[in-house]
Design a protein around this nucleic acid. Structure first.
Lengths: 330, 330
DNA sequence: TTGAAAGCGTTACCAT
DNA sequence: ATGGTAACGCTTTCAA
């Protein structure tokens, strides 16, 4: 209360919150005092009173992966426009740590969670874990009042494969398969690949489907080298993401394979590095901006649910776009 | 208060805070009830009462730049070990928005700030802006009780240039100079370059010093292409960071220049992409892990300052390491 | 060992 | 238009 110094009273609150019933002269005096004293209101107390924190959590595997760094960049920008601040957690894509994020009391410090799980299994998706409004960035996992913003994995993978077929390639390697999964990112992209081959009447050669657990550059490089060691013949590579593709590119070049002349190369995600490799990388732009935009928008709606009434669970996958660059041209 | 349901009382607090004076049986009953009801204590209220939030802010230019993404990754990991959560803000390297971050009341929501400014000028560094404990990740800027964790820019740039000289290169391009700056990152690295040339008795050719404002890949590619257009002769390039170097690499390759045979190439930062370009990129590892570790450590000390007494302002620059890869080998 | 009460700084409601 | 007061949910001090 002594905050008002020489001036006045606790209508300070009214002033700071732009309440209408304040005389202009009063407002001015208060503002002057605020400036003078460098008074800053205590957000924690405000949050307590209002039941809102103005912060959301974003949980991703790791920022070192360009795709997630760029996603985080987008999310933070969109959130900033809505005056939300973003708390970033890293799970390493590890199931245990993903569960921990959901259970963590620190979550309660924010108004909601943008969650990009990688290791979580369907049986983990117990709705009671979701103590906070949640939007999943990824394949539908949770039942109940949870929104999902995902990608058109199957259609995009199919379009990607069709592009490779369209430039005359027939022996197309698939890099990054996950055996035994259903309705996961890897499985859906795999399906798209399979469908495109089937529709084109091209037989699927299991020797060209290369399983890779973690989709990182070193793993892409390693797997590509190993495949070449087997003597397999191929004229194109569709990597499940750009990191795998760029790792593979490095291995191809090490061995003097010309891209795209000998082997055409295709990625997925359109991370910014894809523009500056040599050759630049043809890839799928999955609608990352839109994903970030929708995710924040859904989350904000869900946070406001208490006031505005229930919101039905939504699942959306923005339009994707094939970005054709040098690695599949000529 | 009704939180305790069938069981007991507000010694719940004591139990949850591991206070010793609680009978075991009581503790058990309380814990059982907590579990039963899925009770989660309200962190906001706790924060208000304790005057601590358990969160720190990290303000970087943008996560889309690999270096900052990896720095953020490190910071979040180190912070997590200390049970701190990290709120990430992006400034775009823009002076106005950097000032805004400092003024923002949202800052007050966290216990301290890890700040990596790019556009801020010395005259902006008024200590009264720092309403929160702050550690600067970058060149010393603020006087007063502010720690700085930076890099050995000059020594590392010098070592980098010496490496290029050591493999027999004499016409070394410097990519990314900032004219008219003093004691900034660009200026210090520039000095290191100049010193190495001088000590080796190699004349500095101003035509080989290329100013580039923002150190991004497209800018590196553009500047490199422009330099080649001038017909300038050179046998090595030292780029002020890896993004510039990788952009330049792309332009060199487009024109059929062989790296390292015709032109050796050197970056700075050791972002992970540097390992997987072809050729892989020789660069300076500036001690990023250590920078993150120290920054969080200093900040934690400063946050605890109120209790533990004043802490002198510190400035540290961890050891760097030259990482020699293919772009300067043979 | 446990319970009661005060207080953290704000906002919201109700008087004035 | 302004001021008083309760309440947000917790920790802390003090009393029982």
């Amino acid at each position: 209360m002594a905050r008002l110094a020489g001036v006045s009273f606790k209508t300070v609150s009214n002033v700071l919150n732009d309440h209408p019933q304040v005389r202009d002269t009063t407002r001015e005096r208060v503002l002057a005092a605020v400036n003078e004293l460098g008074y800053r209101r205590n957000l924690t107390a405000r949050n307590l009173r209002m039941g809102r924190s103005g912060a959301i959590s974003l949980a991703v595997p790791e920022l070192s992966q360009s795709f997630f760094a760029q996603l985080a960049d987008d999310v933070i920008q969109v959130a900033a426009k809505k005056d939300l601040v973003v708390l970033v957690e890293q799970t390493g894509g590890d199931r245990e740590r993903e569960l921990e994020v959901l259970r963590s009391p620190r979550l309660a410090q924010t108004d909601g969670l943008l969650f990009s799980p990688l290791g979580l299994r369907p049986e983990d998706a117990r709705p009671e874990l979701l103590a906070t409004p949640t939007v999943v960035l990824g394949e539908p996992l949770f039942a109940g009042p949870v929104d999902h913003v995902t990608m058109q994995h199957r259609a995009a993978a199919r379009a990607a494969t069709e592009h490779l077929l369209g430039i005359g390639r027939r022996r197309i390697v698939l890099l990054g398969a996950h055996d035994g999964e259903t309705a996961t990112v890897a499985d859906l992209r795999h399906s798209g690949y399979r469908e495109a081959l089937h529709d084109a009447g091209v037989a699927l050669d299991p020797a060209l489907v290369v399983p890779i657990d973690v989709w990182s550059r070193p793993n892409g490089a390693r797997a590509m080298a190993a495949l070449m060691d087997t003597g397999a013949e191929f004229d194109a590579v569709f990597a499940m993401n750009d990191d795998l593709a760029l790792g593979a590119l490095r291995s191809l070049q090490e061995r003097g394979v010309r891209v795209p002349q000998d082997v055409a190369l295709m990625g997925f995600d359109d991370i910014s590095d894809a523009q500056f490799s040599f050759p630049s990388l043809t890839t799928v732009e999955p609608g990352r901006h839109e994903i970030a935009r929708l995710a924040v928008e859904y989350l904000v709606e869900r946070v406001g649910e208490a006031d505005a009434g229930p919101v039905p669970a939504r699942t959306t996958a923005p339009d994707f776009r094939l970005v054709v660059r040098e690695s599949t041209t000529r």
